[in-house]
């Protein structure tokens, strides 16, 4: 069963088109990352599928349309943009409202608060919380009652490095339990570490979507198919090294960063040994040569530039 099917959704704000005919399918049990720079339409897309926003055109359905929208949302945990709670109520009282709306057992509130380390402050009013605590409470609300689907929009916003690591671990744990997670983020590293599927948005248009390996091994700018790899090479003067490597057959691009040169080439076209031999033959002794598989960041920049 597909958890979410989005069909040709468009959202316009006057003359501005925030989303243009976006279609995607989220299968059950995957961690689905929605990537895009700020203003690409990630939150708008999630806002539409959670009924916070109305689409200008197109449609969406959860669980193959088996349940009406609001009933389907009761089976989901959602953190969209900022945490929204009643400031005069405590964490526990706020979660009681969430549990009541979703028809969940309030007994699960304690476990949800414990999972985000807010048990000690559960009776303090929400307005007294720090930004990180508010974010953690929103995550607790999203995880309340073991939802089948968890939708997280920039879940690590406002968290310190320890909190970010905790959320990553939490996402992995929840995904490990077989639940579906839809995660919107502009932090590529975050998505790459936890997601099995990815959709890349830019200015409201969907550039790529699907299994993360499939997206990464898509066609490159040169039209060649197959995976693209990068190598980090250092030795001697970086400018001389970059110029020499630029002449090497198979090298698609070179860039100098710090004291090293990064080259990209089609996978299988150029082996690290060949690069090493080429440099040695051109009187350059390498101090470092690291081959890397193409990562999401490279693909993302390639698609969105």
């Amino acid at each position: 069963m597909d958890v979410l099917t989005v069909e040709r959704i468009t959202k316009r704000y006057g003359a501005v088109t925030a989303l243009e005919e976006v279609s995607l399918v989220v299968p059950e049990g995957v961690v689905y990352g929605i990537l895009g720079p700020n203003g690409s339409g990630k939150t708008t897309l999630l806002g539409i599928v959670t009924d916070a926003l109305k689409p200008s055109a197109g449609s969406y359905r959860f669980f193959d349309g088996a349940r009406p929208g609001h009933e389907a949302r009761k089976e989901m945990g959602v953190l969209l943009e900022t945490p929204n709670f009643y400031p005069y109520l405590s964490a526990r009282e706020n979660l009681t409202i969430v549990a009541r709306i979703k028809g969940r057992d309030p007994a699960g509130i304690r476990e949800a608060l414990r999972a985000v380390n807010l048990l000690e402050r559960q009776h303090a009013p929400f307005k007294t919380y720090s930004l990180g605590m508010k974010q953690r409470l929103a995550i607790a609300a999203a995880l309340l009652g073991d939802p089948r689907v968890v939708i997280l929009d920039e879940p690590t916003n406002g968290l310190d490095p320890e909190g970010i690591a905790e959320i990553r671990e939490l996402v992995r744990r929840v995904a490990g339990e077989g639940r579906t997670i839809i995660l919107a983020s502009h932090l590529l590293d975050e998505v790459e570490k936890v997601c099995s599927h990815v959709a890349i948005l830019k200015r409201g248009r969907l550039l790529a979507a699907g299994d993360i390996r499939g997206v990464l091994s898509g066609a490159g700018d040169d039209g060649a198919t197959g995976e693209i790899v990068t190598m980090e090479v250092a030795g001697g003067d970086p400018a001389t090294l970059a110029a020499a490597l630029g002449r090497l057959d198979g090298v698609l691009s070179t860039s100098v960063e710090g004291g090293a040169v990064t080259i990209s080439c089609a996978a299988g076209r150029l082996a690290p040994g060949e690069v090493n031999r080429y440099c040695f033959e051109n009187d350059i002794v390498l101090e470092r040569l690291v081959a890397r598989e193409k990562n999401l960041e490279v693909k993302f920049l390639e698609l969105t530039k």
Binding site: H70, E71, F85, I101
Partner: peptide, 12 residues
């Protein structure tokens, strides 16, 4: 407080 929005997102 945008809680009306959250109520709808949560399932109302």
């Amino acid at each position: 407080y945008r809680t009306h929005r959250q109520n709808v997102i949560d399932g109302l």
